[in-house]
Amino acid sequence: MSPAHREFAHRLGYASLIPFVLGCALVWLIGGRDLDQHVFITTGLSAWAGLVIACLGGIHWGLSFARGLPGRQPLVWGAAAVLLGWLGVLMAPYAGLALHGGVLIACYVFDRRIYTQLGAADWLTLRFRLTAVAALSCFLAAAGS
């Protein structure tokens, strides 16, 4: 990947944190004062987290097909991540956002092993930063729900 593409990927990754941080901040700023807004914000944040988790799971399917990863584990994990992301969206925000935070961390832990095997370990620093902020945002928003 060229340096320009790598920098663009980093910028997009950091931009993906905007809904996490903004949603978390709004949960705490609005609090319980306006139930309709609170539900809208927590639902939006949960949906965003679920979509991100689905993308993270989908990466394993893409890598499995493109690089012929051995075994079924990456495919199973990819499908499990998507299902867990969806389940979190269906749950009450305080529980669903906590689940999302945990799944985001689990995705990172799984990726540490797979990315290293594929020679993509240089992406793990970015993944760690994105995961830390996204998971913390989910946990804090769950606590404010």
Rank of each mutant, 00 (worst) to 15 (best):
residue 125 T to F: 05
residue 8 F to D: 13
residue 97 L to G: 04
residue 145 S to A: 14
residue 90 L to A: 15
residue 19 P to T: 13
residue 144 G to I: 05
residue 73 Q to Y: 01
residue 33 R to D: 12
residue 57 G to P: 09
residue 108 Y to P: 02
residue 59 I to G: 08
residue 135 A to V: 07
residue 24 C to N: 10
residue 133 V to D: 06
residue 27 V to P: 02
residue 98 A to P: 03
residue 106 A to I: 00
residue 104 L to T: 08
residue 45 L to A: 04
residue 51 L to W: 06
residue 62 G to Q: 02
residue 142 A to T: 08
residue 99 L to Y: 01
residue 114 I to Y: 02
residue 47 A to K: 03
residue 73 Q to L: 13
residue 132 A to Q: 03
residue 140 L to G: 06
residue 10 H to Y: 12
residue 92 A to K: 10
residue 127 R to Q: 10
residue 131 T to A: 06
residue 95 A to S: 13
residue 56 L to Q: 05
residue 127 R to S: 08
residue 106 A to L: 10
residue 63 L to E: 12
residue 70 P to R: 13
residue 95 A to N: 10
residue 143 A to I: 12
residue 99 L to R: 04
residue 55 C to N: 10
residue 8 F to P: 04
residue 41 I to D: 05
residue 105 I to E: 02
residue 74 P to S: 00
residue 59 I to N: 14
residue 60 H to Y: 00
residue 52 V to F: 05
residue 8 F to I: 11
residue 29 L to G: 00
residue 53 I to F: 04
residue 134 A to Y: 08
residue 106 A to S: 09
residue 139 F to Y: 15
residue 1 M to S: 07
residue 14 Y to T: 09
residue 10 H to R: 09
residue 24 C to M: 15
residue 117 Q to E: 15
residue 59 I to W: 09
residue 84 L to H: 09
residue 51 L to P: 11
residue 110 F to P: 04
residue 119 G to L: 11
residue 9 A to H: 09
residue 111 D to Y: 04
residue 95 A to F: 11
residue 112 R to P: 07
residue 43 T to C: 02
residue 36 D to L: 07
residue 17 L to G: 05
residue 126 L to M: 15
residue 1 M to D: 01
residue 62 G to K: 00
residue 99 L to T: 02
residue 88 G to Q: 06
residue 120 A to V: 03
residue 43 T to H: 10
residue 33 R to E: 14
residue 47 A to L: 14
residue 50 G to C: 10
residue 74 P to E: 01
residue 47 A to D: 07
residue 136 L to W: 07
residue 143 A to G: 13
residue 11 R to V: 15
residue 86 W to P: 00
residue 51 L to K: 11
residue 142 A to E: 10
